[in-house]
Amino acid sequence: MSLMDILSIVIPSTMLWAAPLIFTALGGTFSERSGVVNIGLEGLMVIGAFTAIVFNLTFADVFGDMTPWVSLVAAMVVGGLFSVIHAVASITFRADQTVSGVAINLLAVGVSLFLVKFMYDKGQTDIIQKGFSKVDIPILSDIPILGKIFFSNTYYTSYVAIIIAFIAWYVIFKTPFGLRLRSVGEHPMAADTMGINVTKIRYIAVILSGALGGIGGGIYAQSITSDFSHATISGQGFMALAAMIFGKWHPLGAMGAALFFGFAQSLSIIGSSLPFLENIPNVYLLIAPYVLTILALTGFIGRADAPKASGVPYIKGNR
């Protein structure tokens, strides 16, 4: 098997697995940059996956080939709405943000499986007929060598994810909103003194994280699993959280980390068909993202520090 063949298998597969992680990790970045820890990302992905699949099954006849995209919008909206619960608890009611995130995760699984049984009278949905499918991107796939590796047999969603990561970078670092977002996450009292509405910014950030997490779940379900059951989202949200940290709370870093974790995930699945990896137990690839994240936090791979006010509720007038 030539290097060319290997790359043209590994890279599209990496992009496929990375796309949901990129979206969700970006969501986490927005939330944590504003000072709200969101370990409910897993639950938000569950809600997104559930919404996308149900919407897809219900409206496949109406929207035709556009169905998966419209379903993604639905997943985004419902994910955003669901994250309001986390926002209310952790911003308005000053709940422990980690506990509230745990509640979001438990609630998302409970609600979505309850509704699946309510609607379909069984534990999992049917397989969707109109998922995201592999495409050769027009024009770009005709570029010699690069076209075959990067733009053939791939998914549009992966490219959308990368574009959104650059947009997120622009928003967080180049716009007034981004400056406010970061200041609220570093020193909310100073931001408040300067007339920034801390509560409003944090609400927006958490809702953005819900919307992006919802999209992440929607992509995962519509391109990888094609149905919804209790096992559809199993740890991708936490892996996205890891990607956010490994990327040092930076949108492009999160994207890079998500691509790398997507690479590890896809190798653990297709590795056995590649010549030089077939003898390596895939357990190493499976645990690589988590081990690397711990190492990054510890400082062995450049220390990663969270925004200063992350996890601390802001109470006006408190020093």
Partner: peptide, 15 residues
């Protein structure tokens, strides 16, 4: 599961 999640939520938001 929903009820358990809600209990966690309400205890967390006990404020």
């Amino acid at each position: 599961d929903i009820i358990i999640a809600l209990i966690v939520f309400f205890v967390a938001a006990s404020y």
